[in-house]
Structures are given as structure tokens and as C-alpha cells.
Simulated assay, not measured.
Amino acid sequence: MRVSLFITCLADQLYPEVGESVVRLLHRYGCEVDFPEAQVCCGQPAFNSGYQDEAREVARGLIRAFEHSEYVVSPSGSCTGMIHHYYPLLFENEPEWKRKAEELIAKTYEFSQFLVNVLGVTDLGAVLKAKATYHASCHATRFLGVKEEPGLLMSNIKGLEVIDLPRKEDCCGFGGTFAVKMADMSEAMVCEKAGHVCSTGANILVGSDMGCLMNIGGRLNKDNQPIRVMHIAQLLEEGVKNGESGR
């Protein structure tokens, strides 16, 4: 199975280790992973700011980059959600590009979604003695319907106590450009979210979008809360290493 990694802007520029964890786990299950260097932003910042023409041009570049890929996997529910939910809208008046967008949609998956629903992997033999809570990002749950997959993967990590996050359906306040345009409201939202994370007593916060994790993690750090912030791919990889070493 050939898989192309769509790294996304945040992971590429700030959290490359997340992409590395994704690649190593995909290799573990027999995937041949490539990285099309022509890939660009999904266009979400421009789209959210009302620049649809500019977003459309960026989207064309991403479609071209993955045109010959068998599968496309991303460590971001948000960017994957942009492709699935808004690309058909961007190209609704361009039949040829809409067809190409739909072809990309059909083969593009968020990481946990691909692991569970395509590879059929739910138990990686991971071991990690810790308490964790999971932040379900808005785009992954609402746009993609990724609701059960992360929890299923975490429930099979031996030694991991998974604690339900209060008001887990609430946004963390990041929302990309929303955090810049509506800074005061965004801060109030992330303060509330960080408080809920702390209330669980977990020592690890897990998520599937680095934008959300960057936002919540920044608040936790500012409040001097010693809570590790991990993408689910990082959590799984660390657990797999523990399992293989017998810890």
C-alpha cells in the first residue's frame, strides 16, 4: 500500500516530530510512504478569511501534488476536513477541478481514521502507564466524523487510563485565524478548556490537531501545569516502543 504524507503547515514548520511518528507507524504496518515535495497549504487560512479565489489557487496546488497518490494521510483533522468539506464548494463551477477535488477527497484520511478504518488496526501492542485525556477537535469530529477512532486506539494501550474530558464537545478557541481576529474571546475559550483538562487529573493531553494542541498547550504552560501535550501518533509510537522493550 502506497501512502503519501500530507504534513500540513503547522506540523511541517513547528512539529515535524509528529510527521515522523506517523511515518514510522505506517511503516510498521507495511505502508510505503512518500512525501510529495510540491505539497502546499490546504488553503484554509485564506478561505476562512474570505479570500476564496486565493484559497482556490492554493487548493489547485495541493490537488496537483497528490494527483498520483494511492492514499493521502494527514496528522490533522482540520486540514483533512478542509479538503473534504470545502473543496467541492471551491470548485462547484469548475467541473474538471471539482472532479479532481473529489478524487483527492476519496483517498485522503486523517491519521487515526486511516489506521482504524483502512488498515484495520486498533491494537498496536502499545504500553504506557499514564493518565490521559483526549481533546476532540471541532473539524475532525464535525467535518470528518472522526469520533470513535482515537478513543478506540487509546483504549487498547496497556496501562493507560483514559479519562473523559468535561465538555469535550467545546472548541478550544484556536480556529486558526479566529484566534488572531477574536483574541479576547479565543483566550477565554482556551482558559476554560485548559481548566477542564486540569480537572481530569490527567498527566497527558492527547489530540489529533496540532493547532488545538498548540493552543491548549500554550495555556497550560502559561499556567505552569505539568501536563504533556501529545499528538495521538506520538502517544501510540511511544507506547509501541515501550511494548517492544518490555516496559
Rank of each mutant, 00 (worst) to 15 (best):
V3S: 01
D170W: 05
R247P: 02
F174W: 15
E238G: 00
K147L: 15
D170V: 12
D209L: 00
R24P: 07
S245R: 15
H135D: 08
V23P: 01
Y86H: 15
V127T: 08
L115P: 11
G151L: 11
L62T: 11
Y15W: 12
E54C: 10
I227K: 08
S49G: 04
C138I: 06
L10A: 10
I232A: 00
K241F: 06
I7C: 07
R64G: 10
C171M: 07
V206G: 04
F66R: 05
A46C: 09
N117D: 14
A179T: 14
N215E: 10
R142S: 09
P75D: 06
S199H: 00
K107S: 01
K222W: 12
E187W: 14
L26M: 06
V33I: 07
G218V: 12
E92G: 00
C212S: 02
V162Y: 02
C31Q: 03
A101F: 00
A11Y: 08
M185I: 15
E237L: 13
G19V: 08
D123A: 01
A140P: 05
S155K: 15
V118T: 11
N203P: 13
L62D: 10
L165E: 01
Q234L: 08
H231Y: 04
G175F: 00
L165P: 04
G159D: 08
G145K: 03
F66M: 10
L90R: 03
V33K: 02
Y87A: 06
T122E: 13
M230K: 14
G217I: 10
T177D: 06
Q225N: 05
N93F: 02
S199V: 06
D123G: 03
R167M: 03
Y87R: 06
D53R: 11
S49L: 15
E244M: 10
M82K: 12
M210T: 13
T108V: 04
A140Q: 01
R64V: 15
E37C: 00
T122F: 05
E110L: 07
R60L: 15
R142Q: 12
Y109A: 03
S78I: 05
A179H: 09
H84P: 02
E96I: 15
L236F: 01
I7Q: 11
K222H: 14
Q225H: 10
A140I: 07
Y134Q: 01
Y109M: 00
K168P: 02
R2P: 10
E54F: 13
D34G: 04
L220Y: 11
L119R: 07
V116F: 03
P75A: 07
G207N: 12
G125S: 12
A132Y: 07
R99G: 00
C9E: 06
A136G: 13
L236S: 06
K129Q: 15
